[in-house]
Each structure stands twice: as structure tokens, then as C-alpha cells.
């Protein structure tokens, strides 16, 4: 559907949870270094689809996944794929920020540490670099040793983004990452996304059509576990081809 080079390729993906067919025959190419948003009514499967990308979904019991998810040509679900290195490639930003139970500095340094970085100076550099990257540095540089839970919720979400970026992922997955935030913090995060897409592939799940419009290059409309429409933001939001999409985005257009 697009001419862009795909970063994530989904082929014939089917997901059953507790016997329910949640995702039906999904095939899609997510373009490299663009922002792609999944939209659709709640319960349509958009978050489930996102979670198949970093294999957090199959941590739950009673989940059956068939089909392929290829990242840079490597199948995530092939038995000899090593899960932790896959996950390292993908930063995750969840609905509410979940700072780890440690101070601000250690939160950002955590990923680098578990991946073998022990040098104090290097870690200092990494922490500063990524905190600057999410425009948090100036706000926290004097209290890096404070528990991360002392930050405001908007700051926490940016901290979580910095923590994710610090392990140098290629892809950032956002699961309605602004739904717990106030309008100003939301704006902060959205601006960051626009800045990040030069370097990263971003995949967002959102239920706010205006947000999808503001930040994404491509939009995927999912309904009842199926992809109904996939195209550029303009195409899907302003000129949808399918009736279901039309009905769904009508509220946005009017």
C-alpha cells in the first residue's frame, strides 16, 4: 500500500485470547521512521496488535498467536528468536507512566546498566543526554537522586520515555501514552514524537483522532479485530474509502 521501506511487517497474524478471536488475519507493513497510529473503538484489538510487536502479549496464559511479525526481516515468533534483544529494540510507553522503584538517575541508567554499561562517566553522559532529549533535564538536574515517584505525572511519562530511549531502540511503541496526562503534558509528549520520528519508527495506539491527525504520517483503522483501512493521515481521516471508517471518523470531520 505504501512505497516506504517497512520496518515491521505483519503477515497473516491471528490472535486468540481465552478462545476469542481477537485479531483476524492481520497483514500490514509499518513504514520506517514514520509515525503510524492505530485508531478504532475500544476493544477493537489495537492495543493487542501493539503488544504482539514486543511479545509482551504472550506472557499471559491462554494466548494463541499464529502468523508472522517481522522486524528488519527477523520473525519475532520463530522459536530461536531471543526475546530480550527484540524488546530492547522497542521502547514502550504505556498508558500511565510507571517509574521503576528507584531514583530519577537510576531510572534512566537502568537499561544501560543491565546491558552492561558500568562506567560512571558514561552513565552520567547517557542520563543527561536522554533527559535533555525529552526536555526534562533542566527540571530535574538538581534532584537526580530523588525518587522518581516525586515527579509530576507528566514528568514521569517523559522520564519513562527517556528510560526507553536510553537503551537505543529503533522503534517506539506508544499505548495511548497521553491518556493520563493533562493538556500541557500531552502537548509536550506530542512535540517529542514529532522530533523523534527522524530517528525512530513510532507506532501509537490512540483514541483521540485529533492527536492522530497532529502527529501521525499513517493511520490504521481497526474494527472488530480486522484492519479496515490503512493509508496516509490525510487519506484516512479526510477521505476515507470504507463506510465503516467514514462512520467512525465522522465525528472528527464535522
Amino acid at each position: 500500500m505504501t512505497t516506504e521501506k517497512p520496518h515491521i511487517s505483519v503477515k497473516n497474524l491471528n490472535v486468540h485470547i481465552d478462545g476469542n478471536h481477537i485479531l483476524k488475519n492481520i497483514s500490514i507493513d509499518i513504514p520506517d521512521k514514520k509515525v503510524t497510529s492505530f485508531i478504532g473503538p475500544s476493544g477493537c484489538g489495537k492495543t493487542t496488535l501493539l503488544k504482539t510487536f514486543n511479545r509482551l502479549l504472550d506472557r499471559n496464559g491462554n494466548v494463541e498467536i499464529t502468523g508472522q511479525v517481522l522486524v528488519d526481516g527477523v520473525d519475532l515468533y520463530s522459536p530461536d528468536t531471543e526475546v530480550t534483544s527484540i524488546r530492547k529494540k522497542m521502547g514502550l510507553l504505556s498508558q500511565r507512566p510507571f517509574p521503576l522503584p528507584m531514583n530519577i538517575y537510576d531510572n534512566v541508567a537502568y537499561g544501560a546498566r543491565i546491558h552492561g554499561q558500568r562506567d560512571k562517566k558514561e552513565l552520567d553522559k547517557i542520563v543527561e543526554h536522554y533527559l535533555r532529549g525529552v526536555s526534562l533535564w533542566d527540571e530535574v538536574k538538581d534532584r537526580l537522586k530523588d525518587p522518581a515517584t516525586r515527579l509530576s505525572i507528566g514528568q514521569q511519562q517523559r522520564l519513562c520515555l527517556a528510560r526507553g530511549l536510553a537503551v537505543e531502540p529503533e522503534i517506539i511503541l506508544g499505548d495511548e501514552p497521553t491518556s493520563a496526562l493533562d493538556p500541557i503534558s500531552t502537548q509536550h509528549i506530542e512535540e517529542l514524537f514529532l522530533k523523534l520520528k527522524d530517528k525512530y519508527t513510532l507506532v501509537l495506539v490512540t483514541h483521540i483522532l485529533r492527536q492522530a491527525r497532529r502527529v501521525s504520517d499513517y493511520i490504521v483503522f481497526i474494527y472488530m479485530g480486522e484492519i479496515i483501512e490503512f493509508g496516509t493521515t490525510e487519506e484516512v481521516l479526510l477521505n476515507p474509502k470504507e463506510k465503516l471508517t467514514k462512520d467512525y471518523v465522522k465525528g472528527y470531520i464535522s
Binding site: 531471543e82 530480550t84 534483544s85 543491565i114 546491558h115 552492561g116
Partner: peptide, 8 residues
């Protein structure tokens, strides 16, 4: 490094 972590 990675191997040690996975072994643990």
C-alpha cells in the same frame, strides 16, 4: 555479557 544474563 548477554549470554551471562540469559544463563542467569
Amino acid at each position: 555479557m548477554k549470554n551471562i544474563r540469559l544463563t542467569i
